[in-house]
Design a protein around this nucleic acid. Sequence first.
RNA 1: GCCCCGGUAGCUCAGCCGGAUAGAGCAGCCGCCUCCUAAGCGGCAGGUCGGAGGUUCGAAUCCUCUCUGGGGCGCCA
Length: 652
Amino acid sequence: MNALEAIRNRFAVALADIAEPDKVDSLLGMIRPAQDDKFGDYQANCAMPLGKQLGRPPRDIATGLVAAVSLDDLCDAVEVAGPGFINLTLKEDWIKSRLTEALSDDALGVQKVEKPRNVVVDFSSPNVAKPMHVGHIRSTVIGDALAKIHRFLGHRVITDNHLGDWGTQFGMIIYGYKHFVDNAAYTADPVVELGRLYKYVRVIMDYHGAVAQLPAAQELLDKQHTALTRVSGEQHEDKAALKKQKKDIARLKEKMVDQQALVEKLQQTIAGAQSDTGLMSAADAHADIAKSVLAETVKLHEGDTENKGLWDKFLPYCLADINRLYDRLNIRFDHVLGESFYHDQLAAVVEDFIQRKIATESDGAICVFLDGYDAPMIIRKQDGAYLYPTTDLATIQYRAEEWQADAMLYVVDHRQHDHFDKLFDAARLWGYKEAELTHVSFGTVLGDDGKPFKTRAGDTVGLEGLLDEAESRALAIAIEQNPELEESRQQEIGRVVGIGALKYADLSQNRSSDYKFSYDKMLALRGNTATYLQYANARVHGIMRNLNVTPASLKAQTGDFIFAEPVERQLSLQLLRFEEVLNDVLVEYKPNLLCNYLFDLAQLFARFFDQCPVRDADSQAQQKSRLQLCALTSGTLTTGLGLLGIESLERI
RNA sequence: GCCCCGGUAGCUCAGCCGGAUAGAGCAGCCGCCUCCUAAGCGGCAGGUCGGAGGUUCGAAUCCUCUCUGGGGCGCCA
């Protein structure tokens, strides 16, 4: 039982007597860790709102509460301060006995939740056959961490990688294979050749697309220009009209900047293609490539033997390709049920929607109209093809019925917010009202310039290159810091530190905000980084190594805890907050709360390391106590990092 | 036009279902290795929490308006 929960339980009894029953929970929520040491360890802020509700002075309420709550075995000082804050200081004996419990427990005293849920975590979900890029890493890393934390707290977790394995990109590869394959290259390395084919077809399609789009884009730009000239030339007398004119001009100019950029981009695409004569002859020979690609996709979906055969042939290579990345990131999934898994269920989904009269036909498409949205959710196109909302609905059905999911978490970037709002509304209309459906959204990864992270050439940055760079930078530091270590150890440190830094950079940020990617910040040796935590952990192990003890040997024969320096008590309290923080993480699915916690823990340990000699402790008993704190610290850091999907080492 | 998400120290960001003097890291300045990993520790300096109203005993946090940046908005995913 963590301290916060213990305190809340005691207050719950007392509050039941004086507060309205439905208010008790929110009042208990006002008991929280104290913001400042001088206010004790925890503070209860519920007397002020209670005073208002009951029409009595809050200080009286606070005093009454203090008298009514039985905390004798838990807290020392219980003080009423200011307008009615109740400041609580935990008894040292209570802290010490919790530490002793944690020391002998593999889960560090963290208890399983009382009501485990079946939680499906849908994350990563890349389109196979397209190169994975930096945008995929946030979903992958955040989803993995949330799954691990759920599991650690006793929930039944199912992770599912909902691959895009049935879309247009296969039409592209199939078309590419049929027309452009280099058989020697394919035999030598199918993955590389398929990747090349995808890009090749993409470039040709983009070229034709740009050629088709450019005149209209140019025309629109000209129109905007004309409009700007016209509006600018207008003469107005009254202020309101003048203001409107100014606003219109500003808006038009803004639009023109965007439109100009679009035109330039199209021109660049065309010029880029034209500079490659080989490509141009292919482009000329395949003028209808977009239509043909679509046709190949349709044939695949309709079960065409040849295309389905190619799909069956290509898919394992595509999977092997992405699995190489998952291996490097050390990430596994319980299931990999991509879009293709659901394709034969889609017709039935749409039929069911029609039969239940929650979908209607509009302009030949089958639509679900939802309150609060102008645009409907289309589940079948005019041409009879299904769309991703259809697949997503089938997926919800499957997860609810096959897996009895109590919660489905979708770790997907924030741009799909509207899609998920609609999807969830539609699913509830359909009858899936029980399960929690949550879009765990996250922001965009930006470059130094504040724009979506791209290479100088304008391509999205490949994930593979990102991992390479992170590792090689970390390796350089590892060699510099540990010149005496053998090379394989340095390599190992480089790998663990580099990958850890990359993951932590994503996790430590509030997931909802965009974040600026920077190798330098990520691999900084100080500050709130994985490296700092790994370093702290390595230092703990250094102490234990020097004194020839292990967490296991300490566990075998525990001793008393002694708080000589203030930092020892602070460190202890922080160690005991682990469970509390893990529960906090799951309230809003925010792994950064765990990062913050671990960073605070590491900082406290660094102070402990400075102020509390272990080898040269004053007594055997004190040394024992400090070693036990070391064991708990390394256990918590290692476990905490592990829950974030980050490895730790005993020496870095 | 409508909808969503941001704006907090020079920079990168925490804090946001209201709580006591707004935090951290980086960058800057000053100290600390005869001492368990200095990939460290201590200290100094730095903020009208975009702006204006409002609700409240109390607002970075809630409400309204406004400025500003980003994203999304019928047959792509």
